[in-house]
Design a protein around this nucleic acid. Structure first.
Lengths: 148, 148
DNA sequence: GTCAATGCAAACTTTTTGCAACTCC
DNA sequence: GGAGTTGCAAAAAGTTTGCATTGAC
């Protein structure tokens, strides 16, 4: 599913919130489909480029907070660093992150559905498939580990 | 499986490393079975109590680094905060962490085995079951969400 | 004009690093 | 005695907060 910056801005307007240059820029940055997996710091850097004006880091944090509250975005923990921002409207998927090379593999949520419903049955726990990555070794790194 | 502080110290000795009061204390803290899920900061606090002398935080970080290199411990990301320290020799298990109340449910690794081997078949990815928690809602929080 | 939003600076938390002093083996 | 360890201090990175000012509606 594709979401445009305008879609995000429309939600803000609908909530009675104000549209500023900083917010417009942040919306554009996170709406770019292939710019998934951005940390707040990266959102900040790119937003400044888009806005062609300085934006304070705290503004980015506060804006992302608003967006999370409105459930426009959520954050995912892929590894050791800071969480990364994800559009909630994007395809739901889980992440497999290689502990060695850092590669991230996206897994469609429906591929995990049977597993998650099994967990729900056994433990009464409803997994949010997109909050944490699963760590491990990707194919390449496993092979090089076995042979090296 | 139970591991004692002495077991850990024996490994250090076997590696030709030195046993200091700080390390002895840290070994005792992380070997206590029910003191799972300690952050480095918590390890630090408790180690000082055990050692009855001040220990520098950097010493704790450096010691935990050594322990990870020797694969005596590893760290697990349960939520937003810092990773927590886990004895590698403890029973392998995965963690389910409630995003709302923070409760952590331990799931035996073998319960997840079929799922993980399915992921391996489909994506060539070997999951490390104990590096990240799965986020979601525990039974209680899900019920209160539905009814509230 | 009002109130949300911003910039700035400061504080905070967690973690890392350099270096001299120490002490375990 | 020598090398592994430590404490201290400073720095780094990421994030949060207070407050006066600005600017969207």
């Amino acid at each position: 599913m594709h979401i445009s910056a305008d879609d995000l801005i429309a939600v803000l307007k609908g909530e009675g919130l104000r549209i500023t240059e900083a917010r417009r820029a942040i919306c554009e940055v996170i709406a770019v489909e292939h710019d998934d997996h951005l940390s707040p710091t990266e959102v900040h850097e790119r937003a400044q480029v888009v806005a062609k004006q300085p934006i304070d880091p705290s503004t980015v944090y506060r804006t992302l907070e608003v967006f999370e509250r409105l459930e426009l975005v959520h954050h995912v923990h892929l590894g050791h660093g800071p969480g990364v921002i994800h559009l909630s409207a994007a395809d739901q998927h889980h992440h497999l992150t290689c502990d060695r090379c850092g590669a991230t593999i996206d897994v469609p949520a429906q591929a995990l559905e049977p597993f998650f419903s099994g967990l729900h049955d056994a433990f009464g726990f409803t997994v949010n498939p997109s909050h944490f990555a699963l760590g491990g070794l990707c194919r390449d790194c496993e092979h090089s580990e076995n042979s090296g």
